[in-house]
Design a binder for these strands. Sequence first.
DNA 1: CTAGGCAAAC
Length: 653
Amino acid sequence: MVHGLVNKVGIEKDRLVNNGLIAMYCKFQDVANARRVFNTMVDRGVVSWNTLIDGLFQSGALAEAFEMFQEMLRTLRPDIVTVTIALRASCQMKDTRRGRSIHGYLVRNGHECDAIVDNMLIHLYSNCGNLKACRRVFDQLANQGPASWNTLLIANFRRGCFGEGIRLFGLMRRSLIEPDSVTVVTLISACTQLADRAQGRLLHGYAIKTGVVRNNFVGNALIDMYSKCGGLEDALREFEEMDKRDVVSWNSAISGCFVGGNFSQGLEIFRRMNAEGVPPDTTTMLTVLPACSFLAAKRLGKSVHSSILRTTTELDLPVGNALIEMYSKCGSLGHSVRVFDSMRTKDVVTWTALVSAYGMHGLGKQALKAFMDMEVAGIPPDHVTFVAVIYACSHSGLVEEGFSLFNRMEKDYKTTPKIEHYACAVDLLSRSGKLPEAESFILGMPLEPDVGIWGALLSSCRNNNETKIAERAAKRIMGLRSDNTGYYVLVSNLYASAGKWNLVGDIRGSIKSRGLRKDPGYSWIEVGRRMRVFGAGHSVEGSREAYQFLEKLTVLMEEEGYVPDRKLVLHDVEEDEKRQALCGHSERLAIAFGLLNTKTGTSLQVMKNLRVCGDCHTAIKYISKITQRELLVRDANRFHLFKDGACSCGDRW
DNA sequence: CTAGGCAAAC
């Protein structure tokens, strides 16, 4: 309308008016009209060129923009604004070549000194990791301000040169330049990376003394530093003391809780954030959704999903990917597929999430189909995709299909198998009972087998009563002296079932003497909008009733033919574990609790942090038959759907 | 009438 008015009034030849029109169209990303105005102009000035070139950059027409820039150089002398625009674009594209040539142009043409341009130059060389060039530019500056020092420090820290960074900070203090809030933030984040809480605390004191604590960047960096250096309490104190929390403060506090495993605390802060009306951003979603996945908190995940739908028009790619994973880990494969179908752009992560979703739910054929569809869609699989698809085959007994994929990784996909892929292959063979094949495969593999490899073999031996191979695997595991106690438990269970109690004792002693602790097993279930946790160290009201109910149930199960496998129950590594054995493994307690506290016929969903043991797997099959309930159990690897006495995993648990 | 630096969360 205004553009039309310009013509009507007869000022369409005015340079300033036309510059204004170009700027306006650029702001609306309407490059075509901006160009049209530019082309009709008879007396273009530097501003006209600058405005259009920047508009092209901002709308992503990079090649066109640089072309225009070259044309401008042939037409008239650029000013410092032109230089800034071109330099920023080169920085963003990490195009050092172009940046260098602009740098050279600046030197040759003797442009006025400009602190911001100087800083962009340091940043340019920092981007390509050229610390020497950074230092050279810095040393030649007419005046080194705080920002130049900061950029130089950051360049060093980003390259991991902490010693040099700290040395430079020493030089900065001896110069007359006072550190500012950016300096403090930079140093705090270096402490975070170095996990140096003591140094971070000193900087906290310094920030208070100089008053920069009130800067949100500083406060947020402190939250991050404390929570990642094992000081969640300090982190949350800082969070509570801030007077104007922004979305990053909230996100930092929430993720700070999650990294240490404090899920309920983190979710409580997320609830407060919503209650206070702070709009969550993409980062909030990418922090909360994985926590929902871990906890299988479907209700919360769904509410996050609906708030995403309410606030955004198009689903962000990483958020969509996180939603697929969330739904599959919450047991809602259907929702995963629906989110997948709704996504307009899909990347390798999207497809891998789908493959892994099918795999977790025991649908190997569907996982393979997704893998092939991915190829048709022109998205090449990566390392993670192969883990997902081979695991999917492994859990569905598709040995040949899985193995042929493993063999084709190198040949057809130019992806060199890593140790985790060899572990998948071992799992594939041994899970279907091909134990001698699995063992010779390990002995012939080109990489040094690690505990994961031998562990995959050993855990399958136990299911197949294959003691000879099991003992060899056990010896290897003990020889590798891993810090992961899960493997020692496997070995200990093997010796216990063979009655070799002295060896069991040895393992227990070695775990203790090395200061390791066994991961306690626990299970959880959501009943009546509340999560209940069962297992050592968790006492829940109602667990006594659950235990009593379980006893009655066991009688019925035995009438149906259930024979408890005492071997598997009674010889665990720690005392609390024995107690747990006596009152039933945590997943059984959680199921019993769910049965008691829900209406007849409703299906239950139970989560466990470790793998379900063989005896529980058998027991739950009986429970599903006797009570005529569908029991969906998520263990560390996958879902088991127990229904009328059978499990969806086909006993490849 | 045009442009711009260094810093925190996934």
